[in-house]
Each structure stands twice: as structure tokens, then as C-alpha cells.
Design a protein around this nucleic acid. Structure first.
Lengths: 159, 159
DNA sequence: CCGGATCCGTTTCGATACTG
DNA sequence: CAGTATCGAAACGGATCCGG
């Protein structure tokens, strides 16, 4: 039992700190779903994506909350946390998410219609502004409709 | 030995795919060091940061390589891979990294001089263009000098 | 039913020793 | 110097259970 903890040094670059919060498989995915797909409840997160386990989801939500990226709203009648929203700090991640989305669309298998991406890339600032606006208005309709549904992305899943 | 793979469904959003590559504690950090700090050798990565273990570093470098984000250059005289560089796909992550850097500087403990960040935020496009330019010229001097050294970031680390 | 918490087997991580 | 090998520790993921 080598109890050497080795006193983790941390570099001064802010990215490292960010990655201590966001550097895992699920956190950014949860934030994306909040921001882009308009998810708000535990169940929505659980059922979507690639099937995050409930314990992991619970843990990630709590971690994001303690880091001030989301807030959980508890109803008075019920002790459970019913819905989640991004804080301003959280919505400020919109540029990161968007750039990642753009990068993914350009370099990974382009499951999402490139046309949409090209447009989004051109209108980056506009999309970010829209995200921020909706956050202020507590409007949680999906920011990018094609990503709203589950097997999503493949062209016109029109309704 | 329950061979149930459960046929992981993946959502159509490109972000998920990106996060399968980048969604861990170290990958983006390695990319940042490649891009912003100008690291190129195994040893530089190993000694910097918050002390990544050599086996993890080795694994991440390999994964980034197989995903086409970096390339390893092997010298003919030696079987070892001597230096690493970003591919074009890798350099295209500059916007993501930069936005993450900006976000971190704004919301996390501001270890980096805010002035630098404000400037970088204003000149986002310029910094990205510079990164791309250097990549083309194989110029690996640090893109952001304050982040070049280890305990870095704290204002005027006089030189 | 919904939002979790708990239990438990499996996978990944991380520190260090070791090798070409 | 650039990695592997090893092994204990931590995180993950699935199933199940529980309180509101």
C-alpha cells in the first residue's frame, strides 16, 4: 500500500480546469442536449443519447450543478429535482459546442446534412445569439430541429 | 462471460462521435499542448500538464493518431516515434480549443491574465488564422507564450 | 410512473517499474 | 528517451430497489 498521493500539480492554463469538469464522455453530451435539443428532465436524458446509465446521469447532473453550469429546479410539492436548466455560465459554452458540432460535421462521418452545417458555420454568431436569447426567455424548444429527435440528423425528418 | 454487447445505438449528432474521440480527460489537453504550447515529443507531454502517466499518454497519442488528428513521425534510424504533429483535421480543432480557453478564463479561476483573454476573444479569428499558418509552415513555437511554460499563466512570468 | 440510490461485475485509469 | 508491463484503485454500466 504505497500511500504516495504525489500531490497533483495543476498547470495554470484554464483549459485544464475546464477539462476537469467537462473532460468525460457524458458531461458535454448532457450540455448539448440541454442547449441544442431542449431537454429538461431526467427521463429525457436517460432515454436519449446512447443510453447513459441512471447512476452516471445522476452523478453528472450533480457535478454540473455544483460547478454552476446547470441548475436543478426542485418543486415545492416534491423533493425530487424536476427539471434542469443551463446557467449563464452554461450557456456560455455554446461557442464550444457549436465549434465541436461544426468540426464533427466536417471531419467525422457526416450524418448531419452538410448544408445545415455550412449554414451554421456561416451564421455562427447568429446561432449563439439565438441560444442566449432563448435561455433568457426560458424557451426550451430545440435550437437545432434536426437534432431534436433521437436517431436524428439524417436529413429531413420533417414533421 | 456475458457476451451481450447490447448493440450500442448512437445518436446521429456529430458531437457524440467527436466526443468518442475527445471525450476524456487527456485528449484535448494533448491537442492544446500541440497547438498552443508547441510540444512535439513524448517527453514534453509527459513532463508538463498535471503529470499524465506514460501508458495513458502513449494510448492517447495512438488513439489521436488512428483518428487522424495527429501524425507521428518515425525516424528511419529508430523504430520509435520521435515527434508528433497535428494534421489539418487536428488544426481544425483550434476554434474549439480557443473557445474552451476563453470560457475557462471567464468562468473558472482566472489564473491567466484576463487582459490576454479579452484580447484573444476579440481577435479570435486572427489567432485561429495564425495557428493555421504556423501549422502550414511547421512552425512549432508556442502560439500563446504565456501558456508555454509549466506553472504558467500567472501574469508577467518575467523572462 | 419518475427521479434517483445501491449493489456488483467489468473496464479504464494511474503510478511505477521495466525494456529496447 | 519512448514507450510497455503490471497491478491496485477508481470509474463505468447494468440491474434492481426505493421514496415521492
Amino acid at each position: 500500500m504505497r500511500g504516495k498521493v504525489k500531490s497533483r500539480r495543476r498547470s495554470g492554463c484554464p483549459v485544464s480546469l475546464s477539462l476537469e469538469i467537462l473532460g468525460d464522455r457524458w458531461s458535454l453530451l448532457v450540455i448539448r442536449d440541454l442547449m441544442v435539443r431542449g431537454f429538461r428532465t431526467f427521463k429525457e436524458f436517460e432515454e436519449s443519447d446512447e443510453g447513459i446509465a441512471t447512476n452516471i446521469l445522476s452523478d453528472r447532473l450533480r457535478r454540473l450543478e455544483t460547478n454552476g453550469i446547470i441548475i436543478a429546479e426542485t418543486e415545492k410539492t416534491d423533493r425530487r429535482r424536476g427539471s434542469y436548466r443551463l446557467t449563464e455560465k452554461g450557456i456560455d459554452l455554446a461557442p464550444v459546442l457549436l465549434d465541436l458540432l461544426i468540426w464533427g460535421a466536417r471531419h467525422e462521418e457526416s450524418l448531419a446534412p452538410p448544408a445545415l452545417m455550412v449554414q451554421m458555420e456561416k451564421n455562427r454568431e447568429g446561432v449563439i445569439a439565438e441560444a442566449r436569447k432563448r435561455w433568457r426567455e426560458r424557451d426550451s424548444t430545440p435550437l437545432i430541429p434536426s437534432f431534436a429527435d433521437d436517431g436524428a440528423g439524417r436529413s429531413s425528418k420533417r414533421r
